[in-house]
Each structure stands twice: as structure tokens, then as C-alpha cells.
Simulated scan of single mutants.
Amino acid sequence: MAPSTAMPSGSGRGGMPMGQRSADARFIVMMIPHHEGAIAMAELALQRSKRPEIRALAEKIRTSQSQENSQMRQWYRQWYGTDVPAWGIGSGHGMGMGQGMPGMGTSLEALKNAPDFDRTFIEQMIPHHRMGVMMASHAEGNTQHPQLRELEAAMVRVQNQEIEQMAQWYRQCFGGSGS
């Protein structure tokens, strides 16, 4: 009998209740709605941005994070035998859009109504990406599945590159020169 099936019901590794999943499961449950928030912001940018470089970045974010969500959902079903549970506040975007999360600085509604969309998009996407980098960096050390650890490392690398690119655009477009 495998060790996990020999445990008394109601307990898991380390005496945690069975309802509490591994660090891998928690990361997936939290990262998917976070990605959904970035995807929603990117879709808005595809409609509203006046700058081709921001639209290109938005398309990259939408594509890569949709693929990552699909991969994480597949792994979750494979590893835990069930679909990823809904998590978050209200629309399901809890961490994704920072609802109820102090310091997140993102609001889809504020972005929709922003008079200077491109500036607001960058002002919101940078802290959103920073939160994603923090989540993935923190999770890497506790991740059990090597393929998830590789995905987390890629998230950190790509989102840090995107943060730097957006910060550069922000300085160029909205910096002290006003141009």
C-alpha cells in the first residue's frame, strides 16, 4: 500500500488536513486567477492602446499566460485528480485584479475608464507583474514537480524582462521630458 493511502482519513503529510493541498497545488490555484487578471488587462490593451509596442506586449501576455493557465490546469487534473477549484473574490479574479489585496494597485474598472490608457496600463501591469514574480519566486523553493519549477522560473524571467521593458517605455513616454 502506498504511504499516502495508508494514512488515516483526514490527515495528510505533516498532519495537515487532506483538504490542504501541496505547495504546488496552492501555487496553481492562486496563479491561475492572477494570470486571468493580466489576460483581462491585455485584452483591454489590444482594444484601447494607441501604441503598437504595448499592443504587441499585450498579445504576448495574453498568449503566454493563457498557455500557462492551460498547462497548469492540465497538471492539476493529472496530479490531483480534479479540476482547479475556483478561488478568489467576486468574479473569480481575486488576486488577479487585486480586489481586496492592498498594494496590488490594479483595477480593471479603472483601466477601462482611464483617460490615458497606455500610461495607466503600464502603471497597473508593472505592479501586477511584480506580484506574479514574487509569487513564482517564493513558490520555486517549495515546488515538488520539476516541470512546475521550470514554469515558475520562466515566469520570473519573462515577467522581469517585461517589467524592465515597460519601465523603459514609461520613462521614455511619460518621464520628465513630457514626450
Rank of each mutant, 00 (worst) to 15 (best):
A40R: 02
Q159V: 04
I126G: 06
A2K: 13
G176V: 10
R13W: 07
F121G: 04
Q71F: 13
I122L: 04
E109G: 13
M166S: 01
P127W: 10
Q47A: 10
G10P: 04
G100C: 11
Q172A: 14
S91A: 12
G14P: 00
V156Q: 00
V84R: 06
V29M: 12
A136P: 03
R21T: 10
I54A: 03
G15R: 08
R55L: 01
L44F: 10
G90Q: 13
I61F: 04
R73H: 06
G12K: 10
A42M: 04
S49T: 03
H129Q: 07
M7W: 09
G37A: 01
W169H: 08
M131V: 14
I126K: 03
Q20C: 13
Q78T: 14
G98E: 02
Y170T: 04
S22R: 11
E59Q: 14
Q74A: 11
M125E: 02
L57H: 03
M1D: 12
I28H: 00
M95R: 12
A110T: 06
A6Y: 12
H145M: 13
M155R: 01
P52L: 09
V158F: 00
S70T: 13
I54Q: 01
E150N: 15
W79N: 01
M72A: 03
M31V: 02
Q65D: 11
E36D: 13
Q78F: 05
P85Y: 05
G175E: 10
Q71N: 10
F174K: 11
R48L: 04
G81I: 11
A56G: 03
P115A: 15
Y76E: 04
E140S: 14
H35Y: 08
M1R: 13
G92E: 05
E36M: 12
A139M: 04
R130W: 08
F121L: 09
V29W: 00
R21L: 12
L46M: 14
E123Y: 01
M30I: 14
W75D: 04
I126L: 09
R171A: 14
M97S: 15
M134I: 07
P3C: 07
M134R: 11
G12I: 02
I61Q: 01
W79Y: 08
S64Q: 12
R157K: 15
I122A: 06
M131D: 05
E140Q: 15
M135I: 11
T120F: 07
R130H: 09
M16N: 15
W79C: 05
G175H: 12
A2N: 10
E150T: 14
D24C: 09
D24R: 09
K112D: 06
G105N: 15
Q65L: 10
W169F: 13
K112G: 07
V156Y: 04
Q47G: 01
Q161K: 10
V133Y: 02
G90E: 14
S49M: 05
P8E: 11
A2H: 11
A38L: 03
A139V: 06
E123R: 09
A114C: 05
L46T: 08
A154M: 08
Q144N: 07
Q165L: 11
M97F: 03
S4T: 13
M135P: 05
V29Q: 10
